[in-house]
């Protein structure tokens, strides 16, 4: 029988969001496929509450490495704790979210175990006792499926929102296993001096709604209109490379091959032609709306709904209609 399926629960100095637990959904499906158990693991300081909460999302066992040296996230410290757990319990599969934290630990822990990983997986399935991991390549024009027959655990980072959130059930609980593993502060290479919170409130990668602008906006002021629409419908503001390179908006809002990969439920592209590099970052969005003057713009081929027209006329109308219908 296969060993257990493990899911890493990420947090920021003890703070979690429901998204921290999202991989327990697909984790359960895989554990059922292997006929094994779903386990979670947490590294940090004072993480009892997080460990318990993982139980309510379906983990049957939670492994917790709890010590002062793990207070803030540091890749080297967390990866050492992770490699220790993997070595001791030999899970079959270990899943991390493909966030900065998840990628940092997964990459470093895998390297310590001498294995490769599948990163940014968008498909995971158990087939004939093997885990098949699918990822997008070349801007999502291809998908590549890999198996890992050599290393244990088989490690994957998983694109945020690629799989459905598990239901939370307060009546469920997990057995919490505490591990007394520590690393010596002197052996660590890094120290976090401070964290400066972003002025942009919405994290595009987790956003359900994104209003995005491209070269077709014509100037930086175009984004003021997009921000207004985003505010009315509770979304974040994104941009194409052309808009970022024109200096109209900051690079942390760029969506696409050299920016962020997003998967909102609604993506509204204004004045974006739909170059392959932009599509790479948003083509898996649930509903794509394209607003563009050029009826031949490639974005219309990816769109769920399209409006051929000038965003300067269309967007204010959308704002007006939404305000009326939503009672804002």
């Amino acid at each position: 029988m296969a060993n257990d399926v493990w899911v890493y629960i990420e947090h920021k100095e003890g703070a979690v969001t429901p998204m921290s637990f999202e991989l327990l959904g697909i984790g359960k499906t895989l554990a059922d496929g292997f006929g094994s158990n779903l386990c979670a693991f947490v590294v940090g300081e004072g993480i009892d509450a997080i460990a318990k909460e993982a139980g309510t999302y379906g983990a049957s066992k939670v492994f917790a490495v709890d010590a002062g040296v793990f207070k803030g996230f540091r890749a080297d410290a967390y990866a050492k704790a992770t490699a220790f757990l993997f070595d001791k319990y030999k899970p079959e599969v270990a899943l991390f979210r493909a966030t900065s934290q998840g990628t940092d630990i997964a990459a470093a822990a895998a390297a310590q175990l001498g294995s490769g990983i599948c990163s940014d997986a968008i498909g995971l399935a158990v087939d004939g006792g093997k885990l098949k991991m699918t990822k997008a390549a070349f801007g999502g024009n291809y998908t590549v499926t890999v198996v890992n027959e050599k290393s244990q655990p088989q490690i994957a980072t998983v694109r945020p929102k690629a799989f459905a959130m598990p239901e939370q059930d307060a009546s469920k609980s997990a057995e919490v296993v505490k591990e007394s593993f520590v690393v010596d502060e002197a052996s660590l290479n890094t120290k976090v001096l401070e964290f400066i919170k972003s002025a942009v409130a919405i994290n595009l990668v987790e956003a359900d709604i994104i209003v995005s602008g491209g070269r077709g906006l014509g100037n930086a002021e175009g984004f003021d209109l997009l921000k207004e629409l985003a505010e009315v419908i509770g979304g974040g503001v994104g941009a194409s490379r052309a808009a970022v390179d024109s200096g109209w908006i900051t690079v942390d809002q760029q969506v696409g091959q050299t920016g962020k990969t997003v998967k909102p439920k609604i993506y509204i592209a204004c004045g974006i032609s739909g170059a392959i590099q932009h599509l790479a970052g948003m083509r898996t969005s649930d509903c794509i709306v394209a607003i563009n003057k050029d009826p031949d713009a490639p974005i219309f081929k990816a769109a769920t709904f399209g409006i051929v027209g000038d965003y300067k006329q269309v967007v204010p109308k959308l704002i007006e209609k939404f305000k009326g219908k939503l009672g804002k």
Partner: peptide
């Protein structure tokens, strides 16, 4: 290599979208 490629595929195209018609 610990990971081996078993399949390369072209993802299904997004369904044909609807271009809205009429006045703005």
């Amino acid at each position: 290599a610990s990971t081996k490629v078993v399949e390369i595929a072209v993802p299904p195209p997004r369904g044909a979208g609807e271009i809205l018609k009429g006045e703005i």
